[in-house]
Design a protein around this nucleic acid. Structure first.
Lengths: 331, 331
DNA sequence: CTGAAAGCGCTAACAA
DNA sequence: TTGTTAGCGCTTTCAG
């Protein structure tokens, strides 16, 4: 069923039909409107979005790229993006890159092919020179095509950026932990190459330094639950003299807590544990996890807004807020 | 940059250019291929997917509908769908319906307008007659448009269906809990109107019945963390004589555990707790939550396959598996 | 093997 | 106000 069918059945031209059904400009006389609308739903007409897009050379599609939609951190941000998109009547095309930058690049290029209005890329960039520059090139292309783009948590690209204040958030956390009386810290620092991990690590160390402290140990490892588990085990194996443990995200922290439990280390009695992100799904773990809260959904919303609005490239930083819970309570 | 630009620069016709760049059929002579490819990337040509879709009247778009992408249950299934889509080089358009059936209907119709190849709808249907029939009508439309469709966890629609075996899964759970020695059960049953919740409730009661038992209490409530928290509180307030508590999903179970903890009720010492789903993010809660594992990602994959393949309408049921953990350990 | 040309369904000048 | 018509960019017969 095409517009032409509808027009004929209603005894009007396609132009008229288009005007009453889709067009926003001058509206035909009421009588014709009725006829066209009637014809349209008798025929079960649905506009062909591709044809509209081609004719108007513009779409209401926006893209969103996440590393892994099962990771609650990304899901929370994505949720914000989708809410904002929904409010603006934009259709969302989402892809999970499974942490593969080739997929990321390919998808960005698909979005360009789809003539997407804008895209939001979520997730910390690896500091790997090669894939970094290839991604940058495609980002360039994307922007040159006239579409908007915003990145969440990955600075250094020539597009709008929304970032959490990882550095000062973890510095604040360090201060509060010190104030609570903790002294001998280990950092489960995630991958060396991940900017987010690095910033949180650095901020924490900075915070400690203000109190004249420095971490007893810094473990690398994956940015995942299993990474946290493994890093905690290593720490115990090494019998490091530690009284509090900071994992650079909640998922790692929870993994670490499991490792400690398995080894019979009491939290917070024997060892305090803190994370970062304040993932909603993890707010019920026990002991309650001390962490740094990020306005994840808001960051997502804002990213979409920036991507859509275009304008001069800006970087917006979102404040993080320390949340003290039982996992770092001092007896 | 259009195909025409490329063709002119390469000194060939658009037909030729199309054949080497996109078309899959007869390929022009090597020399021309080179010229066209060269021209294409000198000009930074990207095909216009809308125009292609219009010309071929077919797309590589698939849709996916979830109630709430932040809910790890949906995220896990969505992840499976996206993986399967990625393997087939399909682009995914995802929407969160925020549990609103009007949004759901609207999105389905957008997908139709986009001439999506197929769609997957994830999430338990409410048993609300009105929105049910309106959704059914749009589902009809969608299928009539020639696109494929599969539903996850919502039977009763005239399309492929993938469902977990909620009923026998929770019956199995009931049996195992009884075998462990628990006797006085309360069910935190979720909303009356939610098919998934109802089936799990019913299966559990069935399982108990085999042992000549029946639940001491059945609490309704939301299908969420807060719903579980509130339901558990009510139960305690009523001072029901209960020794084990089954929440119809993990998220509720975790909420309930928090309520119990707040009230000083020891789990599993004083009260056992079990859930359903085996959400990955919650595998580290303590005490480890006894639950029923569902192959969520696989279900998502399969749903996409069915939606794409079309064919006769089938219903596939996925077996659930009881996972016993510490939350129901008997001293 | 290659090119010309007719659409795909719709929008937006431009005319009437 | 309404209709005519020329594209939008690409695919695909159909000739050459």
């Amino acid at each position: 069923m095409t517009l032409l069918d509808v027009a004929q059945r209603a005894g009007v031209s396609v132009a008229t039909a288009s005007r009453v059904l889709n067009g926003g400009d001058r509206v035909p006389r009421p009588e014709l409107q009725e006829r066209v609308k009637a014809a349209a739903d008798e025929l079960g007409y649905t506009p062909n979005a591709q044809a509209q897009a081609l004719a108007k050379s513009s779409t209401n599609l926006v893209g969103i790229l996440v590393h892994d939609i099962e990771d609650p951190y990304f899901a929370a941000i994505a949720n914000g993006v989708m809410r904002a998109a929904d409010e603006r009547n934009l259709l969302v095309m989402m892809a999970s890159t499974f942490r593969d930058s080739d997929r990321e690049i390919a998808y960005l290029s698909s979005l360009r092919a789809q003539r997407a209005r804008a895209a939001v890329m979520i997730g910390s960039r690896r500091t790997d020179a090669d894939s970094l520059s290839r991604t940058a090139a495609e980002v360039e292309n994307f922007l040159n095509s006239g579409a908007g783009l915003a990145l969440v948590s990955q600075s250094g690209m020539p597009a709008h950026t929304v970032e959490p204040d990882n550095r000062s958030g973890s510095a604040d956390l360090a201060r509060e932990l010190v104030a609570l009386g903790w002294r001998k810290f280990a950092v489960l620092g995630g991958p060396e190459t991940l900017a987010t991990a690095r910033d949180r690590r650095a901020g924490f160390i900075e915070g400690l330094a203000e109190a004249g402290l420095q971490p007893v140990a810094v473990e690398a490892g994956d940015f995942t639950r299993d990474g946290g588990y493994a890093a905690a085990e290593q720490l115990l194996d090494r019998q490091a003299d530690v009284d509090c443990l900071f994992a650079v995200n909640d998922v790692m922290a929870v993994g670490a807590m499991s490792a400690l439990r398995t080894r019979g280390v009491d939290v917070p009695g024997k060892l305090g544990v803190a994370g970062f992100d304040d993932i909603a799904t993890l707010r019920d773990v026990w002991p309650g996890l001390t962490t740094v809260r990020l306005p994840l959904e808001q960051m997502g919303r804002r990213a979409l807004e920036l991507a859509i609005e275009g304008g001069d490239v800006t970087t917006e930083t979102f404040k993080a807020e320390v949340v003290l819970r039982e996992s770092t309570a001092k007896a």
